[in-house]
């Protein structure tokens, strides 16, 4: 998937090793033709993919998840109601890959929390 069609980065910063991205979910992404017809809801897997894509940008390396230890999806993200979001990512690199802890939130609530391992690819 071409992630540029799914979201765009408005701003980014790093404080004490925590990467913070202000992003916008694009409403004209092709995925909303099917998820769901006439009722756009951002697929959970696309938000997981967005976290991988942002981590790749930080590390300047291609990644593949080897495992997802836990991912809780506690709120509904839509390109209409919640387009502006903050993605926080903490990355611990090791030989051949990294561990990722991430959260997607806005000022109101938390939408997704992820703990995963990825390998360089």
């Amino acid at each position: 998937m071409n992630w540029n069609t799914y979201y765009e980065i408005k701003d980014s910063s790093i404080v004490d090793g925590l990467h913070s991205f202000e992003i916008r979910i694009k409403s004209d992404c092709d995925v909303y033709r099917g998820h769901f017809p006439g009722h756009p809801i951002s697929p959970g897997v696309c938000n997981i993919g967005m976290i991988r894509d942002l981590t790749e940008k930080v590390l300047q390396k291609k990644l593949r998840f080897s495992s997802i230890k836990q991912c809780r999806l506690t709120g509904m993200i839509t390109p209409i109601n919640t387009p502006e979001l903050t993605v926080l990512i903490y990355i611990a690199t090791s030989e051949g890959g990294c561990s990722i802890k991430a959260e997607i939130k806005d000022s109101e609530k938390s939408y997704l929390e992820l703990k995963a391992d990825a390998i360089y690819f």
Binding site: G44, F65, S66, S67, I68, K69, Q70, C71, R72, L73
Partner: peptide, 16 residues
């Protein structure tokens, strides 16, 4: 009905 992923746990990828 609409069904959403609530949580994924212990997900291991063997081969894509």
């Amino acid at each position: 009905v609409l069904g959403y992923i609530g949580e994924i746990k212990k997900c291991i990828f063997h081969r894509l």
